[in-house]
Computed example of a mutant assay.
Amino acid sequence: MTWTSDRPAEEAPISLLGWLRVAVRGLCLAALVFGGLFVLLALRLAERPLFGLRRPWTPYITQFVCRGAFYILGIKHETEGAQMTTAGAIVANHSSWLDIFALNARKRVYFVSKSEVASWPGIGWLARATGTVFIRRDPRDAKIQQDIFEARLLVGHKLLFFPEGTSTDGLRLLPFKPTLFQAFFADPLRERLAVQPVTVVYEAPKGEEDRFYGWWGDMAFGPHLLKTLSAPRGGEVRIKYHRPLAVADFQDRKALAKAAEVAVRDGLPKEKLTAGKAYDKALGPLS
């Protein structure tokens, strides 16, 4: 499923000064990302045989790169609430490719992503290097995926899911799909794990539309990256950590998914949800 809007995001032409910002920021970002990737892969050569699935060193490289990316882009990054320290998983709303940087910048997490991402140029390479778990949306793979989740969670990895199943414009929250929550109810995990809901909130740069950082539907990555790099001023992203939900406190995956959805929705500012409803009313139904 892919969420899309009847009205595309506003795309203003990039000025000469904007292209200069693209060049400077783009070169700095590329040096940071690919330089960090080189260091990460070099460390992983020693980390893998010594620690196997455990990654005691390389996640710090990922965090450094992600924090630096927001500095280069001029986007303010803030967090609220306490991060979960016990074993478990993270679930969050999904608005943009920037979510990957935003959620990695403050917490050591490993993303769960659709298998197609592994073949994407650039993003796919980074995802594989940072330990992303790739899954196919095929019921026949459910047992294999559950085994993978169990192995990663039992060694202390905090897996991060986007239960909406798609990204949006950041002005709404789609119902959480309960399918992936089933893995938390396996016998080795249910009594040990908690799930922490996290809300990601973007504020657009001054003078830009609310959906500036949103990346959805069939929007291409390249133009969205150029728009972000060329912006004369950056916006802000806030990560809100909510109270962890003990898996053992819930009867089944649907109840847990609903509780997590409610927590994430409560973290979205009312004005964001109101703006989303205004778009829906003014532009017609969104699919």
Rank of each mutant, 00 (worst) to 15 (best):
Ser167Ala: 03
His94Gln: 06
Lys227Trp: 00
Phe134Ile: 03
Ala248Asp: 15
Pro232Cys: 00
Leu98Gln: 10
Arg172Asp: 06
Arg21Leu: 11
Tyr213Gly: 07
Arg67Ala: 00
Ala82Gly: 11
Ala127Tyr: 01
Leu256Asp: 11
Leu53Asn: 08
Gly235Thr: 09
Leu245Val: 14
Asn93Val: 04
Glu80Ile: 07
Thr199Leu: 01
Glu80His: 10
Gly35Trp: 00
Val91Met: 09
Tyr241Val: 06
Lys76Ser: 11
Arg44Tyr: 08
Arg238Cys: 04
Ala151Gln: 14
Arg108Tyr: 02
Leu189Asn: 12
Thr166Val: 10
Arg67Lys: 13
Asp187Cys: 11
Val39Glu: 01
His157Gln: 15
His94Pro: 14
Asp99Asn: 13
Val237Gly: 00
Glu78Asn: 13
Ala87Glu: 11
Pro139His: 05
Glu47Phe: 01
Leu159Lys: 03
Val133Gln: 07
Thr58Trp: 02
Ala194Leu: 12
Gly26Leu: 01
Ser95Pro: 12
Ile75Phe: 02
Val264Tyr: 07
Ser115Met: 03
Met219Thr: 09
Gln196His: 12
Arg44Ser: 12
Arg106Gln: 06
Gly81Ile: 05
Leu32Ile: 09
Phe70Val: 00
Ala142Trp: 05
Phe176Asn: 02
Leu53Ala: 05
Arg55Ala: 09
Leu29Glu: 01
Ala89Phe: 06
Gln63Ser: 05
Leu171Ala: 06
Met1Gln: 07
Trp97Gln: 08
Lys177Val: 10
Ala69Pro: 00
Ala12Phe: 09
Gly165Val: 12
Ala257Met: 05
Lys107Trp: 13
Val264Glu: 06
Leu98Ser: 11
Trp97Pro: 12
Trp125Thr: 15
Ala127Asp: 07
Lys206Ser: 08
Ser230Arg: 02
Ser115Cys: 03
Thr130Asp: 00
Thr4His: 13
Glu47Thr: 04
Trp3Tyr: 15
Phe111Lys: 09
Val247Pro: 15
Thr79His: 08
Lys206Gln: 08
Lys114Phe: 03
Lys277Ala: 15
Leu37Phe: 04
Tyr279His: 09
Leu98Ile: 05
Phe250His: 15
Ala46His: 10
Leu53Cys: 04
Gly222Pro: 07
Leu53Ser: 07
Pro13Val: 08
Phe149Pro: 07
Ile14Asp: 10
Ala89Trp: 07
Gly222His: 02
Val33Gly: 00
Leu174Trp: 07
Met84Pro: 15
Tyr71Ser: 05
Ala248Phe: 07
Lys272Gly: 05
